[in-house]
C-alpha cells in the first residue's frame, strides 16, 4: 500500500517544475514535503491527484495508475492552499457533498471540529477570512478518512492557537486511525516534531528523502569563537555557516568525534529548519 511516483517530469512553458521525480509514500507515515516557494511541492501534489498531468512518468496508488482513475483518486484527499469549492456554497453543504464523494467522511466528527474551531457552518465560503478558509478545509481533511491525506500549506492564515489545535488533532487522528499524511510546507519549525520522514525538494528535484532522525544525525552544529570554528572546520564537510558578531556556527555533515573537539567549541544537533535553509539556499 503506497503512492509511488515514477520518473515524473513536468514543464510549464520553458520552466521545468519537476524533473524525474521518484518517490514513494509508504503506508501510515507522516511525511514532511519541504521546499521553498516555487520548488515544485504543489505541482507534485497536483499531479498525484490528477489535477494536472505529468509530461512524463506516472503515479501509482496501491497498484493502480491514478491518472483518470476514480478508484485510485478516491483513496486520496488533498487539501489545497487555493480554494476548489464553489464560493457561494455553505460549509454544511460542502460537508454534505463531501460525504457524497467520500463515503467514509465522518459528518459528526466534522461538525464537532467546526464547534471546536468556532466555525459557523451556515456561512458560505466567500464570507470566510483566510484563516477560516484554511480551517474548513482542514476540518474536511481530518474527517474524510481516506488512506492518503495530502495537506498543502495547511496552517496558512491560522493563528498560533488554532495551529496548536490543528497539530494536536492531526496527531490524535493519526494515532487513532493511522493513514499516510503528507504535509507540504515551507514552515519547517512547526512540523519538525510531527513528521517522521523528510522529503526536501529544490528546483523540482528531490534532494533529501529519509527519516527525520536519520537526516539530523548525519551532521552536527559547532559554534564558538569565529577563529576557533574556522580552524576546526578546515577539513570538514561544511554545508553552511552563520556569523553573529564574533560568534560563528558551522553546520557540518559527517560523524563527530567528541575527543577532537576543542573545549572552547560547543557541539549541538543539526536543526531541521537550519539544515533546510542551508540545503535549499542558492
Amino acid at each position: 500500500m503506497s503512492i509511488e511516483i515514477k520518473d515524473v517530469s513536468k514543464n510549464f512553458g520553458t520552466t521545468q517544475a519537476l524533473s524525474r521525480v521518484n518517490l514513494t509514500f509508504d503506508n501510515n507515515k507522516i511525511y514532511g514535503l519541504l521546499g521553498r516557494n516555487g520548488a515544485g511541492k504543489t505541482t507534485l501534489l497536483n499531479i498525484i491527484t490528477n489535477r494536472i498531468f505529468a509530461d512524463e512518468g506516472e503515479v501509482i496508488v496501491d497498484g493502480i495508475p491514478s491518472k483518470e482513475n476514480d478508484q485510485a483518486l478516491q483513496k486520496i484527499y488533498m487539501m489545497s492552499e487555493k480554494n476548489y469549492y464553489p464560493t457561494n456554497m455553505k460549509i454544511k453543504e460542502i460537508f454534505a457533498w463531501t460525504k457524497n464523494f467520500y463515503q467514509d467522511f465522518d459528518m459528526d466528527y466534522a461538525k464537532k471540529l467546526a464547534d471546536l474551531f468556532d466555525l459557523n457552518i451556515n456561512k458560505n465560503v466567500k464570507s470566510l477570512s483566510t484563516g477560516y478558509t484554511s480551517i474548513f478545509k482542514v476540518i474536511i481533511a481530518l474527517s474524510v478518512n481516506t488512506p492518503y491525506v495530502l495537506l498543502d500549506e495547511p496552517v496558512l492564515g491560522l493563528d498560533a492557537n488554532h495551529r496548536d489545535i490543528f497539530y494536536k488533532l492531526l496527531i490524535e487522528k493519526y494515532s487513532n486511525f493511522p493513514c499516510t499524511i503528507v504535509i507540504s510546507t515551507h514552515l519547517i519549525e512547526e512540523v519538525s516534531t510531527v513528521i517522521e520522514d523528510v522529503i526536501i525538494i529544490r528546483n523540482g528535484t528531490i534532494i533529501k528523502n529519509q527519516s527525520r532522525e536519520e537526516l539530523l544525525s548525519q551532521g552536527y552544529t559547532i559554534s564558538g569563537k569565529a577563529s576557533s570554528v574556522d580552524s576546526f572546520i578546515v577539513d570538514k564537510n561544511v554545508i553552511g555557516t552563520e556569523t553573529i558578531g564574533g560568534l560563528k556556527s558551522a553546520f557540518i555533515l559527517g560523524s563527530i568525534n567528541k575527543e577532537t573537539i576543542p573545549t572552547d567549541l560547543e557541539v549541538t544537533k543539526l536543526d531541521l529548519q537550519k539544515l533546510f535553509v542551508q540545503l535549499t539556499n542558492a
Binding site: 496527531i171 490524535e172 517522521e196
Partner: peptide
C-alpha cells in the same frame, strides 16, 4: 499512553 504523549507534545507517535 503513546497517543496522549504525542498529542500533548505535538510529536510523531513513532517518536
Amino acid at each position: 499512553s503513546i497517543t496522549e504523549l504525542s498529542v500533548n507534545y505535538r510529536i510523531n507517535p513513532a517518536t
